[in-house]
């Protein structure tokens, strides 16, 4: 679809470029404003009131536990989705029958079903198990359900693209048994998918709110839960500084993900 007809562009090109830039501004403007507000002494007065890091320091003082818990949940979620998801993707890639397709369909349901509903269902079923309900593992379970389909899809996409069957038959013809093939052929060739899936899982887990809001307890607050608190009850500068910290955590992951998508595609 690339039209490379020299450097001359028509009116249509400039109109569409202008429109796209406008859309981009709509998306970026509030991000910039909130970054600015996070380091402004008094947002109502404006930038003239001076720049400061005290709001960021205040957030780090008051909410560092939420940041740490979010990281802890995200990494645990990553480990769980790797252990659970990669074998599933492998089986889906190698065996296409009605049963595996059904399972694939079911696995994606937690994306389709609103997080609120899933969280409610979890509370109704396991809310009575006090130890479990009060621990951070309760949140982890929700995050694993929500992120697992992303891991499976990402790995499956790469596995389907590299023609795993032929590679494995080649390895088997050379005498490699299943375990050896899985670790020396399957995993290395699926690495781009595993990497992008991992980034996706960590990013989504750090930002998850719909499930977490119902699953958390006063002692298990994650970053987005803290964000919601700060938006509701604290001054706009603190909410902004908190958001700034969230951006700093998430945007590098997103940029990595995009770079991976651009350069990590298997050669055709």
């Amino acid at each position: 679809m690339t039209t490379v007809t020299g450097a001359r562009h028509g009116v249509a090109f400039w109109l569409q470029l202008g429109f796209t830039l406008l859309v981009c501004m709509l998306l970026v403007a509030p991000m910039l404003l909130s970054l600015l507000a996070g380091v402004t002494e008094n947002y109502l007065v404006g930038i003239e009131s001076g720049l400061t890091t005290r709001w960021i320091a205040e957030v780090l003082r008051g909410y560092s536990d939420t940041i740490l818990l979010s990281l802890q949940v995200a990494l645990a979620c990553l480990a769980a989705t790797l252990v659970l998801g990669v074998p599933v993707a492998y089986v889906l890639a190698r065996r296409g029958n009605w049963l595996t397709r059904l399972f694939e369909e079911l696995l994606t349901m937690p994306i389709a079903v609103p997080g609120l509903a899933t969280a409610l269902a979890l509370i109704i079923t396991y809310g009575g198990v006090g130890e479990f309900r009060r621990s951070w593992l309760f949140i982890l379970v929700g995050h694993v359900l929500f992120t697992l389909p992303f891991m499976v899809r990402s790995v499956l996409a790469v596995m389907s693209a590299v023609d795993l069957r032929t590679l494995e038959e080649g390895a088997a013809s050379l005498g490699a048994g299943f375990a050896r093939r899985f670790f020396t052929i399957v995993l290395p060739n699926s690495l781009p998918g595993i990497l992008s899936g991992s980034l996706m899982v960590v990013t989504l887990s750090i930002g998850e709110f719909n499930l977490t809001w119902l699953l958390h307890t006063p002692l298990t607050k994650t970053l987005p839960v803290g964000l919601a608190d700060s938006y509701a009850s604290l001054r706009i500068e603190i909410g902004s500084a908190y958001t700034l910290i969230f951006f700093v955590m998430v945007i590098p992951l997103l940029l990595l993900l995009q770079a991976l998508a651009r350069f990590g595609q298997p050669p055709r």
């Binding site: 998306l27 970026v28 991000m31 990013t203 989504l204 930002g207 998850e208 709110f209 719909n210 987005p224 964000l227 919601a228 938006y231 958001t243 969230f246 998430v250 945007i251 992951l253 997103l254």
Partner: peptide
């Protein structure tokens, strides 16, 4: 960018 922002953000 907004792809991974939670609803609260």
């Amino acid at each position: 960018f907004p792809l991974v922002f939670p609803g609260v953000v």
